[in-house]
Design a protein around this nucleic acid. Sequence first.
RNA 1: GGAGAAAUACCCAAGUGGUUGAAGGGGCCUCCCUGCUAAGGAGGUAGUACGGGCAACCGUAGCGAGGGUUCAAAUCCCUCUUUCUCCGCCA
Length: 428
Amino acid sequence: MIAIELIRNNPELVKENIKKKFQHEKLPLVDEVLTLDAELRKYKQQGNELRSKRNTLSAQIGQYMRNKEIERANEVKAEVVKNNEKIAEIEVKEAELGEKVKQIMMQIPNIIAPDVPIGKNDTENVEVKRYLEPKIPDFEIPYHVDILEKLNGIDIDSARRTSGQGFYYLLGDIARLHSAVLTYARDFMIDKGFTYVIPPYMIRSEVVTGVMSFAEMDGMMYKIEGEDLYLIGTSEHSMIGRFMNTIIPEAQLPLTLTSYSPCFRKEKGAHGLEERGIYRIHQFEKQEMIVVCKPEDSSTWFEKLYNYTVELFTSMEIPVRTLECCSGDLADLKYKSIDVEAWSPRQKKYFEVGSCSNLTDAQARRLGIRYKTEKGNEFAHTLNNTVVAPPRMLIAFIENHLQADGSVRIPKVLQPYMGGKTEISVKK
RNA sequence: GGAGAAAUACCCAAGUGGUUGAAGGGGCCUCCCUGCUAAGGAGGUAGUACGGGCAACCGUAGCGAGGGUUCAAAUCCCUCUUUCUCCGCCA
């Protein structure tokens, strides 16, 4: 959500930004919201004047009542009643127009960073940099579910019976590896100075509608029956929701937080083979980082954040690359976004394991996240990034560390979290 | 889950329908007095959002949130949230 003042003062800039994102169908919204806004302000002014009149007259009635001048009091009462009818009309208009303006404002995308590459969709995202040499081993890499089954590390069939498609049982050393990765990632972020947080895994509808659009909510969120509660789709929901409608003391910024949570997603729609297995599931776990900072610091934090993910993956000896989202692939709240992709030696390409976004003040405006300065309150900037999301990252992990005999090598940094094991071997 | 009590500004707190957007205290700020310290005296002090205005400023909203009653609501009614006490249940 951008500031309406920006549209009032510089509608052309907002339109240019919409064009850059190839959302030409939204161009009329800019003039539309300007008209509605002007109208809304007119009604607000009228409403204020009428309410002011009511306040004055009501005070008069009080005077008359105290002086026992019942007749005169009744005369003024009649006047106020008439006045109130007008107020009621105006207030209906105010509410209607206010709602319309808000609806449109939510659709107008955040201004994107000047250096965001222009492109229509994800095919035009731009590779920024590669880290570690992508390996193609001289033996064939099986489908990740097959590798995991060989290692006795997964039971999908039972999960289908107990829970349906999109669930899994992780077993033995693979389950332990899953936890090890999360624990390692947690400690990694703590070492970077982040505060570890375990947030609520359910949030109220009020928070849900704050952090996402209705369409996203419908496609993602599971509702708890009979309660005003939803399972979170990512810890970002409860982590950012925590600061909804709050004013943070300036001295507390930047807030640098790393959270663990399971994530629950409906993942409506059909997905191909490469998205099955443990790639796209209804329940997974994730270590996340979020930063709430002052506007002048958000660009610096953005660079730091995605580099932490790169550093984490390379420390586990997994080749990655960074990919800058082009204008058309950038979600409406985002100023700039970089995906971290891990190398898949089986598919011989990179696939997404994390996404780092600078939302500038767009999310903060929408949710009312401000900080207190000497001059007044300002909207903060918010950023979020995946630290790591097993089990998806496990696909990259086992493919990159698979050895010819079917066993999976454990890189040094994880060995302490695996009880000193150096590999996970095939069960005889 | 049951029964009861509560939510007012930076903090404590008074306030059951009309000069109360809010007494009083603490804190904080300014000044005075006091030759250190301590104490005393005078004054000031809600933040916010929105609308209007070049501005000084004016207006509207706002007493946990949302509705309602009324000419008028911190005050009466309803719903919700949170906190506290007791009981029950429970990792």
